[in-house]
Design a binder for these strands. Structure first.
Lengths: 290, 290
DNA sequence: AATGCTCTGTTATAAAATTTCCAGAATTTT
DNA sequence: AAAATTCTGGAAATTTTATAACAGAGCATT
């Protein structure tokens, strides 16, 4: 790989556009666990990618090989070179980028954040929170601040599909007090608040709490003052090599929560989702996924 | 490597004494450049080790395999497991949660997605994209769809601080054609489009492209059709154990981009950020971070 | 709605790789 | 030193694997 030799993975990526649907499907399957899958027999590769045998044969020719054996030989050669090469490539995420490249530095930090964050979460609390969020007998309010409102909205978007009676409140808007009029004992609030913590959010939390609402809080490692009012808090580590904080870890938690809530009552939710699909089909807003 | 399975190299080393001369010769040849040589055809391996074909067949049986194909399959499996674990995958992320808990399953998937995604990004392309996004002489448009608009907004929110002349367009809104009136040669578009790909987004991209705008696309592994119009595309892996796709990886890329753009012109950006801080202080929207 | 195109998978054919069998060489034992 | 045993490689047999030819399906275009 010292000189201009491209790896086969590179070649596949480059040619990706020239490939047909089945071939692309195959290409992704090869890259999925590279290079192992390409080293097996053609038949197995085809089955794994759920394409026909000739499709594989055709694609390797498109990639510039005379036939599958030649393709494999090249793959083995690449593997040999890589193993023999003493520079440990495995500690960089983006291969080809120097380890000091921002892609690697940032990714390192985020992975680290994820590790720390997950390590401090009590699974029972998480399950409990999911149950509260999924409880359709109680209205659900989702609250975000200036930056976190994107996370709040993301959660809202999905919750709206999953269940009825969901409301998204932006604490930075001045209309939020109106929403609180309807809040009663036992309602559930999911609140996002990371530094710099927002006064509005705290006020909102206080009022919701006073009305007997249960609060689930997503915050950072230093914890928003809201956490004293919260039933359950999740603190994410958010430090990255940037002037900003990272929302990636919190995003991960939110997505996990969506998945968990959904799994818990899948049979009913499926109907809702299918209904939504139908509506989208009718509006022709989306293309069919091929 | 989940249980106490030994690697094939280990097995060979253990059995080394029980092997005959020709077999030992072969064994050393296999270990010479392991595992590549064992993944080729039996004939080639025999020739490389200067032993006969049946010798190879016999030895793999001595190692406990039914035949050469089974030996190879085992070797590939070993390779797959090894490549897949740059970070120890098998310790659980949320300690105390069973490894089958959704927190761990989801996190595994996301980490895996990150690994794959970063592996396919060309650092030069990324740098180039950052430069385009940071170029203050060109207007910047950020476009998101139904789900991705949260990502778009996140990027917009930060870009707005970093530089002037940023516009956020929601492709699902019907007012977007108005924005395109002002687009001219060389303007930069950052477009988010993941499955199910949205017709509106494609239309928008086509019109922007027709007007000579440069497009940077964030999409998924199957690639939005927009990518054919795009100057630069980034494909994230987005599959998670959920009915939905994950935005976490794309979020990571977006945050990295924000950090990179910011670093590139830090001196000027710092002033802008401080100005913003002042304004927030005056509105007393935030608490001081202590 | 019909026509032409490209793409995909099934079937058939050819090639190759692996296994088996056997005879001769090498080694050990008597 | 001869005989028995084990090991080794050549060649055939068998299985597996890859390629080629073809027809039907799907898609876009007119």
């Amino acid at each position: 790989m010292s000189d201009e030799e491209l790896t086969i993975a590179d070649r596949i990526n480059t040619k990706l556009d020239d490939l047909t649907r089945a071939e692309r499907q195959l290409a992704h399957s090869i890259l999925e666990n590279y290079p192992a899958s390409g080293l097996g027999p053609l038949t197995a590769l085809a089955k794994g990618a759920q394409v026909s045998v000739p499709t594989v044969a055709r694609m390797v020719q498109k990639l510039g090989f005379k036939g599958y054996p030649e393709f494999q030989a090249s793959l083995r050669e690449e593997l040999r070179a890589k193993v023999q090469n003493p520079i440990a490539k495995h500690d960089t995420w983006a291969e080809g980028a120097p380890s000091g490249h921002v892609l690697n530095r940032f990714t390192d930090a985020v992975i680290d954040n994820i590790r720390h964050t997950l390590g401090h979460i009590a699974p029972e609390k998480f399950d409990q929170a999911c149950e509260m969020v999924g409880d359709q007998s109680k209205p659900l309010y989702i609250v975000g601040g200036r930056v976190t409102h994107t996370l709040a909205e993301y959660l809202f978007l999905h919750m709206q599909v999953i269940r009825p009676r969901v409301t998204h409140i932006q604490s930075t808007s001045n209309s939020w007090p109106h929403y609180l009029l309807d809040v009663s004992e036992g309602d559930v609030f999911v609140i996002f608040d990371v530094r710099r913590y927002e006064n509005n959010t705290l006020k909102l939390a206080e009022m919701a709490h006073a009305r007997g609402a249960k609060i689930i809080l997503f915050t950072d490692q230093w914890r928003s003052p809201v956490h004293q009012l919260a039933e359950i808090s999740f603190s994410s580590r958010i430090v990255v090599p940037s002037a900003w904080d990272s929302a990636a870890t919190t995003m991960l938690l939110v997505e996990t929560m969506i998945a968990a809530v959904q799994d818990a009552d899948w049979d009913n939710i499926k109907d809702r989702m299918e209904g939504l699909e139908d509506m989208f089909d009718q509006t022709k807003l989306f293309r069919k996924f091929t």
